[in-house]
Amino acid sequence: MPLLLIDFPSFNPVAVAIGPFAIRWYALGYIGGIVLGWLYARALIKNERLWAGGSPISLSQIDDFILWVTLGIILGGRTGYVLFYNLPFFIEHPAAIFRLWEGGMSFHGGFLGCVVAVMWFARKNGVSILSLGDITCGVAPIGIFLVRLTNFINGELWGRPAAPSLPWAMIFPTGGDVPRHPSQLYEAGMEGILLFIVLAVMIRLGALKRPGLILGSFILIYGLTRIIGEHFREPDAQLGFLWGGLTMGMLLSIPMLIVGGILIVWAVRRGAPRPAEAVR
C-alpha cells in the first residue's frame, strides 16, 4: 500500500438531528443546488445584455418554475433509478419505491424529469422551451457539484481499485480494504466545477442569444464527463459491468453525446432570434 494512503474521513451523513427527525447532507445537497441555481437563474434573467432583445422569461415565471423543476428532479430521479438500476428488486418490493430517505436517485432519470418539466411549463406559460432549457442547464452544475460532494460524505458510489502508488487513494468503509479512487470528487470536479465554468464562459460570450446552445452544450459535455468518470467509478453491485465492459452510466450517457451535438449544430445554424421573436 502507498505510504500516503488516505483513510476515509468519518463524516456523519446526518447534518442535523432533532429527536427522531434527521436532515441528511444528501438532502441538503439537493436543496442547496435548487436554491443556489434559482438565485443564479434570476441573475441571468435580469442581465439583459446576455439576451437577444431581453430575456424571454420573466422573474415571476422562473420563481414559479422552481416547484416544477424540483418535482421533475425528484420524480424523474427516483423513476430512473428504479427502471435503470434496480428494477428486479423494486418489482419484488414495490413499497420500497417510496422510501426516498434510503437513497437511490439517477441523474439521467432526473434529467429526463427536468426535460418534461421544462416542456410542460414552457407550453403552459407561453415561453421559449429552448431558452428555459438553457437557463435550467446553465445552473444545473451547481446542484450536481453539491450532490456529488454529499455522495463522498456518505461514503457511497466510491471508485474502482486504484494503483498502489496513487497517493490520494482511499479506503472507504463499505469498499473493503482495497485502496480506491475517490471518484465522487472526480465527478464533482468534472460534472460540477468544470461544466459550470465552461457554460458560464459561454453565457458571458453570448450563448443565451442562440436558444438551445447552452442546452446542447450541457448535454454533450455532461455525457462526455460522465463517461470519463465511469472509468474510475465502481459499477453498481446489482448490475456490474455490461456489454464490452460498459457500465449503465456509460450506456445512458452515449445518447446524450448525439442529442447534445445535434442541438449545438442546430442552434448555431439557426442563429440568434430577432428582437421581436425573443421577447413575447
Rank of each mutant, 00 (worst) to 15 (best):
residue 120 W to C: 00
residue 208 L to T: 15
residue 161 P to H: 13
residue 128 S to Y: 11
residue 111 F to N: 02
residue 136 T to G: 05
residue 215 L to A: 14
residue 168 W to L: 03
residue 200 A to M: 14
residue 143 G to V: 10
residue 134 D to P: 13
residue 191 E to C: 04
residue 173 P to K: 09
residue 110 G to N: 04
residue 185 L to W: 06
residue 195 L to M: 12
residue 173 P to S: 06
residue 135 I to Q: 05
residue 204 R to A: 10
residue 129 I to D: 02
residue 216 G to Y: 06
residue 136 T to R: 01
residue 189 G to C: 07
residue 181 H to F: 10
residue 199 L to F: 11
residue 213 L to E: 04
residue 173 P to I: 11
residue 150 T to N: 02
residue 129 I to P: 01
residue 142 I to S: 00
residue 154 N to V: 07
residue 129 I to Y: 03
residue 183 S to I: 14
residue 142 I to H: 04
residue 163 A to F: 11
residue 219 I to S: 06
residue 129 I to K: 10
residue 195 L to G: 02
residue 111 F to Q: 03
residue 107 F to W: 15
residue 198 V to H: 06
residue 129 I to S: 02
residue 207 A to W: 04
residue 206 G to T: 11
residue 147 V to N: 08
residue 163 A to M: 06
residue 170 M to N: 00
residue 167 P to K: 12
residue 150 T to G: 01
residue 166 L to W: 10
residue 183 S to K: 13
residue 128 S to T: 15
residue 140 A to Q: 01
residue 198 V to W: 07
residue 206 G to V: 08
residue 177 D to A: 15
residue 113 G to Q: 09
residue 214 I to W: 00
residue 197 I to A: 14
residue 218 F to N: 09
residue 186 Y to E: 07
residue 185 L to Q: 07
residue 138 G to H: 04
residue 197 I to C: 05
residue 197 I to Y: 08
residue 134 D to M: 11
residue 131 S to C: 12
residue 171 I to T: 14
residue 175 G to W: 08
residue 211 P to G: 03
